[in-house]
Each structure stands twice: as C-alpha cells, then as structure tokens.
C-alpha cells in the first residue's frame, strides 16, 4: 500500500496503459481520478473492474481544452486537500506519411499529446508547489528518440514532451516536485494493434527482449517513479522498451 492516502490523477484512463495505471494505483491504496474523452461506458467499466468505486472517480475531459482541464483540477481540489501524483497519459496517433499528412492530423496530435501535458501541468503545479511537493510523470514514447515513418506528428509531440519534462523538472525541483517521463516501446494495447498486426515478427525482431510489453509492466515503472523510492530522480526519460532503443538486431 505505497500510495495509501495519496491522490492521483491519470489522464486518458479508460483504456490501454491508462487503465493499467488506474488499476495499479487503486490496488496500492491511492484515491484515483482519471479522465476519459468520450466513452462513458468504457470509463464506468474501468471503475467497476477495480471493485473499489469509493476510491476511483471517472471525469470526462478534453485534454486539449484549458478550461476543461482547470475545471477538473478545481473539482478534485474541492474534495481533496492535496494532489500528489499527476500522470499525463492521454495521447492519440494519427499516422500517415508527412507529405500527405493533413494539418488537422498534425494539430490534433500536438494539441492532445503535448497540449494536454501543458494544460495539466499548468493546472496542477501551482498546487504541488504550495503543498510542498508532488510527482509528475509524462508518458512519452521511444519514438521520440528513434524516428518512425508515418509518425512525424506523434514523434514530434513526444520529443517535445521529453524536452518539456527536463525543463519543468529543473524549475520545480527546489519545491520537491519531481517531473519525469516514461518512454514505452511497443505495448500490447489497442493503439499499437495496427502496427503489431502489420509488422508482427518484424517488429519483434528489432526488440532485444523479443516481445511486446503488457500495459501492467508500464504501470509498474510509473508506480516506482511515483513512489518515495524514486525521490532522487527528476528530469529523466526512462525507456521501458525491451531494449528497442538500443537499435540492435538479434
């Protein structure tokens, strides 16, 4: 029960890595608030599956909208005396070759992936500074450093998150607010299903550990970064990618 009495906010918690994060923190005793964009039924199912409805709260929110984000954070702080851990997980992909990528696909990805991180950090960091500490963990991607055909928008958004993470960490460190990012490789989620289906073993061939991560394995590392065991870690981008970023072939 590492997170008993802690208040955690997870963005994009109704599926994939987000759901694994929500479940992990609930299991470890935290009061967890999570956002979802549109699927109320899916969010309700996440709440039901934890079996602890008094400990988990689903909130509809478009992370691109500053006002929505501030409203969510204000609502939480009306009920809670602190907000200890923020996990910026909400993200989308709109893959396509750059030469034919629409402006809309570019801006949707940037506004959701990077804009969401910006809005939530802005809304939460004031509280964390005055409460004397907090943990912010941004979900990035190994693609930020590797490059990937058809993912210029996604890679740019995640690369920006890495840069954002380092600088915000430097600004907030003296207030005991740590800011780190986690860069997953290929994870068994719906978001990566198209790539996994299309390239299957070819991708596995590039992963030194030879398989994909489960969302729960990502949640384990996030839980570590959010714990007191990671007190001395800030401004870091932690790759959880089975060695994919080593760029070696087996």
């Amino acid at each position: 029960m590492r997170f008993k009495s802690k208040v955690v906010l997870v963005t994009g918690g109704s599926r994939g890595i987000g759901t694994a994060l929500v479940r992990r923190f609930v299991e470890e005793g935290a009061r967890v608030y999570f956002t979802y964009l549109s699927s109320k039924a899916q969010a309700a199912e996440v709440v039901r599956l934890t079996g602890k409805p008094h400990q988990i709260f689903a909130l509809a929110c478009d992370v691109r909208k500053k006002k929505d984000v501030q409203k969510i954070v204000d609502e939480i702080l009306e009920k809670e005396s602190s907000l200890d851990i923020l996990i910026n997980n909400a993200g989308i992909i709109r893959d396509g070759l750059f030469l034919t990528m629409s402006d809309e696909d570019w801006s949707d990805v940037m506004e959701t992936n990077l804009g969401g991180v910006y809005h939530f950090c802005k809304a939460v960091s004031k509280q964390m500074v005055t409460q004397g500490g907090g943990k912010i963990i941004n979900i990035s991607s190994v693609i930020a450093e590797l490059g990937s055909c058809g993912q210029v928008n996604y890679a740019a958004s995640k690369g920006a998150i890495n840069a954002f993470t380092r600088s915000l960490a430097a600004e907030l460190a003296s207030k005991k607010v740590t800011v780190n990012a986690l860069a997953p490789g290929m994870v068994n989620t719906r978001m990566s299903s198209a790539a996994r289906a299309a390239f299957g073993d070819k991708i596995k061939d590039r992963i030194p550990l030879g398989d994909f991560a489960e969302p729960e394995e990502i949640a384990s590392v996030v839980a570590f970064l959010a714990s007191e065991d990671a007190r001395y870690i800030t401004g870091q981008i932690i790759a959880v990618d089975g060695g994919l970023s080593l760029l070696c072939r087996r």
């Binding site: 004031k126 500074v129 005055t130 600004e171 003296s174 207030k175």
Partner: peptide
C-alpha cells in the same frame, strides 16, 4: 529565496 519561491509566496498569500 529563488525565483520560484516568489511564485510560491504569491500562491500562498492568495490562498
């Protein structure tokens, strides 16, 4: 005090 402390003080005064 460092620069971020000034903000911290302002936030606390407001509250």
């Amino acid at each position: 005090a460092e620069s971020i402390d000034f903000l911290d003080i302002v936030f606390r005064l407001e509250k």
